[in-house]
Nucleic acid binder design. Structure first.
Lengths: 111, 111
DNA sequence: TAAATATATAAATGTCTGTTGATATGCTCA
DNA sequence: TGAGCATATCAACAGACATTTATATATTTA
């Protein structure tokens, strides 16, 4: 960089890998459905499967990915395994993304 | 859904497709580098190519994707084509993502 | 221990996507 | 008009990923 980048943005540059990984895990609609569903509180896998009408292996797969990115916490209770949001701010991020998306659509210059 | 989901989250559910698409465009590190570089103001393609040390077709490809998601605006000036951030709040989102990522790492329960 | 349920994992597949190298398009100037 | 630069597009390829089907692991109960 030419040295004209504000310091705060330079900090960003060093974290772009992590940011991209986070955004990647938010880039699948089914994973987002799971996250938003978990906003109500911890849920078992079977519950998620029922509610979201997804196959059980698919839900497990996505939960694994969400766990890998630390977006959810896991807890076993008997035969059930409960997943919960690791941080409620995740929902805020989704709402911010929705707001920006809406605004971008409203302000777009090319139709 | 069982009706136990807060209304504001129900609104989210209807926009998950758009949110996922937005997150998807933020899920590539090179695209993020471009966005952060554009935070300084509009830049020509060749400038981006030089600064980020990426091939010119690759930069064009990513810019096309960013434009498709309305994250950047395009403007021609002679032989040069300038790209700029469509909304400065995009940077805020990146910073929020970085902050959450950091917090998730700090608070993770499984090591 | 056997059966039943809950969840995870494995294998296979088709699709998407990031990247490269080559080429086309568009603009400017001589 | 032709040469040269800036940018976009195309073709090809490799790797990633979402999804499905089938199977394995773990827990509870009879």
């Amino acid at each position: 960089m030419s040295g004209i980048v504000p310091k705060e943005n330079i900090e960003l540059f060093e974290r772009l890998g992590d940011i991209a990984a986070l955004a990647r895990s938010l880039s699948d609609e089914n994973r987002l459905r799971i996250l938003v569903y978990l906003a109500d509180g911890k849920q078992s896998v079977s519950r998620i499967v029922e509610e979201l009408q997804l196959s059980q292996p698919l839900v497990s797969h996505h939960l694994k990915e969400l766990k890998r990115c630390l977006l959810v916490n896991v807890e076993r209770n008997g035969p059930f395994i409960y997943y919960e949001l690791a941080d409620p701010r995740i929902l805020h991020i989704l709402k911010d993304l929705a707001a920006i998306g809406e605004e971008l659509l409203a302000n777009r210059k090319t139709f």
